[in-house]
C-alpha cells in the first residue's frame, strides 16, 4: 500500500485505484485474519484523531485519508462524521494524539473547523497538537481562517504532514 500511496502522490494512481486497492486489501485481511494466532503488535508511527466536522456528513475524502494513514503505520481514531468540537477535544485528551485531522466538504465546514480549533485552544491543548484540514473547497486562505497548521489537497499530503510532525520523515 506504500507503493500505491506513492503512485497516488505522483498522480500515477487516482481515487479509483486507491479504492480498488483498499477493497483488495480488505478482502485479503478478511481471509488472513482468522488464521492469525493473535494480532501481531507492531509499532505505530503515531496517533491521529480524524473526523468530519460538525454539520457536515461527507465522508469519502475523510475515509481515504484515514485509510492511507492507517496503511502508512499510523494509529487513527476515526470519529466519523458531523463530529462536535467537544468530541475532538475529548478524544485528544483521552488518546494523547499529537495530530488532528479535520475534514469538510461544505463551505459551512469552514466555521465548524474554526470552532473546533478554538475549542482545542480553549481546552489548553493547542500547543500539544498539530491540526491539518482538508476537503474539496479547502485552500490556504481557509487554513489561515480556521487557525489550522496545514491543509492538504489530497490524502497523501495528509500522510506526509503526519510523518513530518511525528518526526518519521
Amino acid at each position: 500500500m506504500e507503493i500505491v500511496g506513492k503512485r497516488f502522490a505522483d498522480s500515477e494512481y487516482f481515487i479509483s485505484e486507491l479504492m480498488y486497492s483498499g477493497e483488495i486489501l480488505r478482502g485479503i485481511t478478511d481471509m488472513v485474519k482468522p488464521r492469525l494466532a493473535e494480532e501481531t503488535d507492531f509499532k505505530r508511527l503515531g496517533k491521529v484523531v480524524m473526523g468530519t466536522v460538525a454539520g457536515d456528513i461527507h465522508d469519502i475524502g475523510k475515509n481515504i485519508v484515514v485509510f492511507m494513514l492507517d496503511v502508512n503505520g499510523f494509529e487513527v481514531y476515526d470519529l466519523g462524521v458531523d463530529v462536535p468540537a467537544q468530541k475532538f477535544v475529548d478524544k485528544i485528551k483521552e488518546s494523547g494524539a499529537p495530530i488532528v485531522g479535520l475534514s469538510g466538504f461544505l463551505t459551512l465546514a469552514y466555521d465548524s473547523m474554526k470552532q473546533t480549533v478554538e475549542a482545542i485552544k480553549n481546552a489548553g491543548l493547542r500547543d500539544k497538537v498539530k491540526v491539518m484540514i482538508g476537503g474539496g473547497q479547502i485552500t490556504e486562505q481557509v487554513m489561515k481562517y480556521t487557525g489550522a497548521d496545514a491543509y492538504g489537497k489530497d490524502a497523501m499530503v495528509g500522510v506526509s504532514l503526519a510523518k513530518k510532525w511525528t518526526g518519521a520523515e
Binding site: 454539520g55 456528513i57 469519502i60
Partner: peptide, 18 residues
C-alpha cells in the same frame, strides 16, 4: 439524504448519504 430537522440541524443544508 439527511436534511434540516432530519439528521442535520436547522441551520445546515441537505446532504447525500452515499
Amino acid at each position: 439524504y439527511k436534511w434540516p430537522g432530519h439528521g442535520v440541524s436547522p441551520e445546515h443544508t441537505y446532504q447525500c448519504l452515499e
